[in-house]
Amino acid sequence: MIPRQGWRCAGLVGVCPSHLAVQTLYRQATPTSRIGAVMPKEALLLRTLVELADNLVDDFDVVDLLDHLSERCVEALDVASAGVMLAAPGGDLQVVASSSEAMRTLELFQLQSDEGPCLDCYRSGDPIINLELSAADRRWPRFTARAIAQGFRSVHSLPMHLRGRTIGAMNLFRTARGALDDTDVLAAQALADVATIAILQHQVAADAHILNDQLSEALNSRIVIEQAKGKISEAAGLDMDHAFRRLRGHARNHSLALAELSRRVADGTLAPGSLDPLPPDRRA
């Protein structure tokens, strides 16, 4: 499971040699963050890879994994926004995680169940890199207009596939001028690949239905999260982005899976007002 607060991978020492090697590199790269300086990009990438690799040896929640992935992409890569879409059992692409929970960002991802780079990338299995939005208005008129209106200049989509099986695609948006550099592109694909392996390895040697059940469960969890966000938003007078931060903050504080906490809020087991308040610096 992804460490929800700080680093908690030490218990895995000796479990997996390659995992351990990455972990050692990560530890060497960590000290700057411990004294409060900005963590260097390489260290952020390593930490993210280790977090994702953690899922190979532990039980995990798909929604948490992809939530971390999109959040880390924005921290570690030169992109403004990141999101992950997975294919539902019937083949339709649906949004599962996004680095921003603002409604307009979610809707930009969601639009891609009909048109957009994620859908094309998922269908072809090929990455789309450094596509200038100003040149894409014929290919995806509705998507392009919305993305430009939100201030994005370029878009990148990376397939999530393994051994001929594509389960979804990751979207990265840039607001800055110029191209995403090659190192960032490689790093992004590496992150997408490790996330894919983490999801797919769960069904290796098991019932072939498990992947479909797991994807269906992840997509339903995303709906539960939206319902929980709505309850928190209404009960606490927060916008959706801040309602999500409160939900995620509480999940991490109490080592709960985001989907499980959301379920308790949405089905009324847990009152939305009883969640930990947002830290002051995270209020808008």
């Binding site: 319902q227 709505g230 928190i232 939305p272």
Partner: peptide, 15 residues
């Protein structure tokens, strides 16, 4: 297919 916004609204209406 409901948009995610419908589920956000459902959460609000349920409160």
């Amino acid at each position: 297919n409901f948009k995610l916004v419908v589920h956000q609204a459902a959460g609000m209406v349920s409160v």
